[in-house]
């Protein structure tokens, strides 16, 4: 029990690291995912092919492999992912600015991997809009842009929000993998620091693990409950 009080700093640091990585990856994945979704619904077959290839690749290989490839390819290309050392951001998110690139590599891997799922969530949202809505808009003489802005996207957003939420929850859980790539500033890193690496570890591994699990549940369960509530309220309004 005393581990929670003695080592609260370690737990807190790990929790913060996980949250920071998740916020970064969520923003990145939403941006890249939207871009890929645009490619995937583009009218030109070759452009569509690029989007489809991206999604097929990243949806079907394990995140572990993505992380390995990141850890191999980026250093080989002479990149320490230094482009993520964005001035103001490194003071806010300290692991981002460290000499060791692992936090940045893991964040990049998590981002490009999650982006594929974000793309699919957005696309399922667009596809869930009844075709008649867009046809009516076109027959009113709306341009492509007007159609998107006033008719399709507001509805697609509503259909996409729940799948997007599940993607983000999955992403939070996936961030646990970062530890295998040397990121100690994560919730799973707490276990590593207090048990595996500690000399003559005096803490009960069970207690530490329970703390780690709680750290993730604090993030995932409330998000899941919010999502359930959103889904329920949508079902009520969508029912015709």
């Amino acid at each position: 029990m005393e581990v929670y009080f003695d080592q609260f700093g370690v737990f807190w640091e790990g929790f913060l690291g996980t949250v920071q990585m998740c916020v970064l990856a969520a923003v990145g994945a939403l941006a890249i995912g939207t871009l890929v979704a645009v490619l995937r619904v583009a009218p030109l077959p070759p452009v569509r092919g690029v989007g489809t290839a991206y999604v097929t690749v990243f949806r079907n290989i394990p995140l572990t492999v993505v992380m390995f490839v990141c850890a191999f390819v980026l250093p080989l290309l002479g990149s320490n992912a230094d482009f993520l050392k964005i001035p103001g951001l490194t003071t806010l998110i300290r692991p981002l600015g460290t000499e060791l690139p692992f936090f940045r590599f893991a964040t990049i891997a998590l981002t490009v991997y999650t982006a594929a799922f974000v793309c699919e969530a957005l696309r399922s949202g667009i596809n869930a809009v009844p075709v008649g809505q867009a046809e009516a808009a076109r027959s009113l003489g709306m341009t492509f842009g007007q159609n998107l802005r006033h008719i399709v996207l507001p509805q697609a957003w509503k259909f996409a929000i729940v799948p997007l939420g599940s993607v983000i929850i999955a992403m939070i859980k996936n961030s646990a993998l970062a530890l295998s790539f040397g990121v100690l500033a994560s919730m799973t890193g707490v276990f590593d620091r207090l048990i595996s690496q500690a000399e003559g570890a005096s803490y009960d591994s069970m207690a530490v693990l329970v703390g780690v699990v709680v750290g993730y549940l604090v993030l995932t369960i409330p998000l899941g409950l919010v999502l359930d509530a959103v889904e329920r309220s949508q079902k009520k309004t969508v029912r015709r």
Binding site: R59, P62, A170, N174
Partner: peptide, 10 residues
Amino acid sequence: VEAGAGAAGA
């Protein structure tokens, strides 16, 4: 349901 490491859940 896309989770796991996908999910490690993805």
